[in-house]
């Protein structure tokens, strides 16, 4: 279970995000807010991508004191994923498969569900469209035994079929007891979720 204690994120001297306390039970959470409100900052701090003050724990493992155990339980998909352009998609899948202790069956299911079979093995990332990059990023986020899945604008640039597949996967992981936090500034969320508004770096439940 996720625990946030006195989380603060600064960009230079500017306080970009402040979350005094949050312990959500397993479920789907829709982080909603305007541009620049702090949605991505919130997800990135939970994913270990940016420095922060305070503490973040997942199943008792602190990101600060036990980063290895914490990060094994937490996966992240960025709004605009960026990867070294000479890599192949399968290179990245290989990294995440071994690091996040996923299974080959999981990977094959994701590749078929996101319809990546045509480009994942031989095409370098430099030739990917934004939709292909998004599919790869979502695949990496869904690999492994993660208990906290952080998705930043996951439905942007996806076609209808893969959107439906993604929604199914989110629902399946929810049933398996994971916490899924989705940042999106759409008007309607396609799944049953708890809404969390972000305004000026503060969460409002």
């Amino acid at each position: 279970m996720l625990e946030i204690r006195n989380l603060k994120v600064y960009y230079s001297s500017h306080l970009a995000l402040e979350v005094p306390s949050w312990e959500p039970p397993a479920g789907i959470y829709w982080i909603h807010g305007k541009n620049g409100s702090g949605k991505s900052t919130f997800l990135k701090s939970l994913a270990g991508l940016i420095p922060y003050r305070g503490d973040i724990l997942m199943r008792g493992f602190s990101l600060r004191k036990n980063p290895e155990k914490y990060l094994r339980l937490v996966n992240y998909s960025a709004t605009e994923p960026v990867y070294p352009n000479f890599l192949l998609g399968r290179d990245l899948i290989h990294f995440f498969l071994s690091a996040k202790e996923g299974t080959q069956e999981q990977v094959e299911m994701m590749i078929d569900g996101f319809q990546m079979r045509d480009f994942i093995n031989h095409q370098p990332i430099s030739q990917y469209s934004s939709g292909m990059l998004k599919k790869l990023s979502l695949t990496l986020a869904l690999i492994g035994q993660s208990q906290l899945i952080l998705l930043d604008e996951p439905f942007v640039t996806l076609d209808l079929d893969t959107t439906a597949f993604l929604q199914d996967q989110i629902w399946v992981r929810r049933q398996q007891g994971a916490t899924i936090v989705v940042a999106a500034h759409t008007d309607r969320f396609p799944l049953e979720a708890t809404i969390v508004n972000v305004e000026s770096g503060k969460l409002k439940f």
């Binding site: 270990g48 980063p67 990060l71 992240y76 995440f96 690091a99």
Partner: peptide
Amino acid sequence: QQMAFALNLPYK
């Protein structure tokens, strides 16, 4: 710029 994803991998 391109390998920030590695910060999410579980390493000490």
